[in-house]
Simulated assay, not measured.
Amino acid sequence: MKISREVKTAILVIGSILLFFWGYSFLKGKNLFDTSRKFYVLYDNVEGLNPAAAVTINGLTVGKVSAITIQPKTGKLLVEIQMDNDLPISKSSTASIYEPGFIGGKQIAINPNFKDTNYAKSGDYLQPNIVLGLTASLEKNLAPIQEKLDNVLANADKLVININEILDARTKTNLKETIAQLNETMANLTAMSGNMGKIVTDNREKLGTAVANLDKTTSNFAKISEDLEKAKLGETVENLEKTLVNVNKMVADMESGKGTMGKLMKDDAMYNNLTKASKELELLLQDVRLHPTRYVNVSMFGKKEKPYVAPTEEQPKK
């Protein structure tokens, strides 16, 4: 059977149209002969997610985003996910939009809930989730820092304005003079340091001798300390404390009138008797000196002893 030219042309045109639609759909991420499963997720914001973006499970690519459409009534975005494998996914699984890196676009990571056996079928909806990428996380964390930096810069501007108000012409002149004097002082200190270095260099031998003497003195002090330790200084101090306690007790007894010294200090009668006895002893010695023959009488011819006459305080002149 011979096919006419018109039939061949019609078949070619129809085939071209079908091929065109298939190619157009393929470029849009759709495959007319595709039998894979499709799941849907509703997001408030897709965060830069594009069609044909990869869909992964634990880092393994298992599908792609086939379409993103906006819902007229709610304003939410409906994302269609096309999966090429038969891995069972529960309805409680989440589909998280995340950023795999700085260069690549956003992707969707499915976090399956293996404990849930209520598996989703093609056309079911999954739970939405958005994971902040590194850029968004940095932006979120840098926002308060930027606010604080703005406050710091504002305070710095105020500080500079206040400094400009303080540093008038007179203050600047005084500051310059102070800096000049400080430079002069530093120069003097440098010269003094040089002189000190020269003095140390010139008297290095004497300084060495002084240090040696100091070491010797330190050794002597250590020896003295050791000798004092051997001399039982602690025991001596303890005995001295006991002696002081006894002296204090003796003084207290004397103050209270106890003992001979206490009575002598506190008893007026005893003091008067001692004074009177001392006076009488003085008179007796004076009479012995003036009339020794009354007490020592050596007579070879038997003279009679003169009668005793009590001495008086004032002896008569001869």
Rank of each mutant, 00 (worst) to 15 (best):
K198W: 05
N188K: 15
L189N: 02
K242M: 01
E229G: 15
K198S: 11
K232M: 03
L189G: 02
T243G: 04
T178K: 07
A187S: 14
S219R: 09
D227F: 11
E235T: 15
G208H: 01
K242W: 03
L228T: 04
V211D: 10
N203I: 01
I224D: 06
A231Q: 09
E184Y: 03
N195D: 14
A210M: 15
T218H: 07
T190H: 01
A210N: 09
E226C: 03
N239E: 15
N183F: 05
L207Q: 07
L189P: 00
V245W: 04
I179N: 12
A231N: 14
M186R: 01
M186N: 12
A231R: 04
A187Q: 14
N195R: 14
K176C: 02
S225V: 04
V245N: 10
V245F: 10
G194H: 04
T185G: 08
G197A: 10
D202V: 07
E238D: 13
K230A: 14
T236P: 00
T190S: 12
E238T: 15
E177H: 08
E241Y: 07
E238Y: 06
K230C: 00
K223W: 03
L228P: 01
K176D: 12
Q181L: 15
E229K: 12
G234Q: 06
A180C: 02
M186L: 12
E235I: 07
G208Q: 05
K198T: 13
I199A: 08
N188Y: 08
D202T: 01
V200R: 01
G197T: 02
E184F: 06
N220M: 07
E177G: 07
L207H: 02
N188P: 00
N220C: 03
A180G: 07
N213M: 11
K232T: 09
K216P: 00
R204T: 12
S225L: 05
L240N: 11
T201V: 05
